[in-house]
Amino acid sequence: MVKRSALVEVRECERQPVPVVYLAVRAEDMWFVVGKARPESACMPVTFFTYLSTAKKAVEMLIEYGKKIFEFFPPQFDIDLIRAVDLCNRLDFVQLCEKRWKRAAARRGGRDAAGAHAAEHSRLEDGEVLPREDPADLHAASVSRRFALSAEGSASNTAFSVDLQIAVDCLFKVKRGGSAPSRVCGVVEVDFEVLRCLVSRWFSKEELEEWERCLWRGHVRRG
């Protein structure tokens, strides 16, 4: 759940095993774990675990406990994970998600979408590359990996889907055209990249960014 840079090294285990506490939640066939230290075979892991119905609830619970028990602060959590489980609306993560979004947008500007996306997900925010077989993967981004591009993703796999109604609402908002017509068509999800390409014809660069930001506030989903 947290970045590697936020974890401490437990050196005492080399001399004699020391208990290291982890909190874990199982939801949607995944384990979410938070703890102060990386799992070391020499240490004695003491894990408290529970089961929840959704990944979102699991992550939310571990954020709260992570803050209270392990004294973590919002920037220490894995923002990709927060974003993947749709928790960017939380007050403590809004700014961090926006920053992340801006960085991703800047990268997208520089490279082609596939390359940028693959790079973004194979890297932690602090620049460390996670080896795939590393047990810290569990800490780092199990959800983001699941939602993200099947592994080494090409653009066609990196499907971001957006609710069309929300996309239209955002379009009206950015163009200051008043409120959009009320929802009448049910929920329709469309490919983000295709929609972005379409919308970019009518928007300036700034407007496009504003539109994306509007979408990003909890409405963009990775399919």
């Binding site: 602060f73 919002p74 920037p75 403590d92 809004v94």
Partner: peptide
């Protein structure tokens, strides 16, 4: 701000950070 990741923050996070 660096500790908290922004300027608009949860009060309880800000208190913890100030104390730290």
């Amino acid at each position: 701000r660096a500790l908290l990741g922004g300027e608009y923050v949860l009060r309880e996070d800000a208190m913890r950070a100030a104390r730290r």
